[in-house]
């Protein structure tokens, strides 16, 4: 029997998906700003963070309300638990995108153009595909897709280390190049963290579906 308050559960689910779309969009904009040396996209990414933060607060509030008023059990209580954890991961993912945009703005302000993108494009493609697939696995309750995401995190970690090696090579003293290299390392690290949050999301989807 479908109960009237199950619509509230669906609304929480929809908000989480919407938040995931926002997190994905801001990450995409931030990295496009970097790869295309596009200050406008960078600025747009910087403006989106507040919306994602507000969604996390809304989801937390709705989840607590649902627990207090609806006494959820079984898969319903798992969904609420996952909504709280996943919204935190998405909020942190949005923070990392914000950090990417801030570092990009610094680089573009200093030198007008990104000169050394190292392997950021390849890495971001992998990380953002993980995030997108994690959301799809949640939306479509695709356990196999969620399980696959966890393995994919290793390649992003490897590329992050590779970027660090490439960027730290020959780095010395306080100069313009060193500043840019350090900021690019931060950007690489942020992408790696986004992948970590995507992995967390995948683990949360597995818990939602299996209870384990």
């Amino acid at each position: 029997m479908e109960r009237y308050f199950h619509k509230e559960l669906e609304a929480i689910r929809s908000k989480l998906v919407f938040m995931g779309e926002q997190a994905n969009q801001v990450a995409g904009l931030a990295i496009e700003g970097f790869l295309e040396s596009d200050l406008e996209k960078t600025q747009s990414a910087l403006k989106m963070d507040d919306q994602i933060d507000e969604l996390e607060v809304e989801i937390d509030r709705d989840a607590v309300r649902y627990i207090a008023l609806r006494s959820p059990v079984s898969s319903d209580v798992r969904l609420i638990f996952v909504a709280i954890k996943a919204s935190h991961d998405l909020e942190r993912s949005g923070d990392e995108a914000h950090s990417i945009a801030k570092n990009t703005r610094s680089i573009l302000t200093r030198q007008g153009k990104v000169l050394e993108p190292v392997r950021i494009e390849e890495m971001s493609r992998l990380a953002f595909a993980m995030l997108r697939d994690a959301l799809t696995s949640f939306l479509e309750e695709d356990l196999e897709l969620a399980k696959g995401i966890i393995q994919r995190d290793k390649e992003v970690d490897r590329l992050n280390k590779e970027n660090f090696r490439l960027l730290s090579r020959g780095m010395s003293g306080e100069n313009r190049e060193a500043s840019t290299q350090i900021e690019t390392i931060f950007i690489s690290k942020s992408i790696e963290r986004i992948a970590d949050h995507a992995k967390n999301l995948a683990e949360e989807v597995i818990y939602l579906m299996t209870g384990e």
Binding site: F18, A27, G28, R132
Partner: peptide, 9 residues
């Protein structure tokens, strides 16, 4: 390159 889901209205 497109990283974002289709935006819902």
């Amino acid at each position: 390159m497109s990283h974002s889901f289709q935006q819902k209205e």
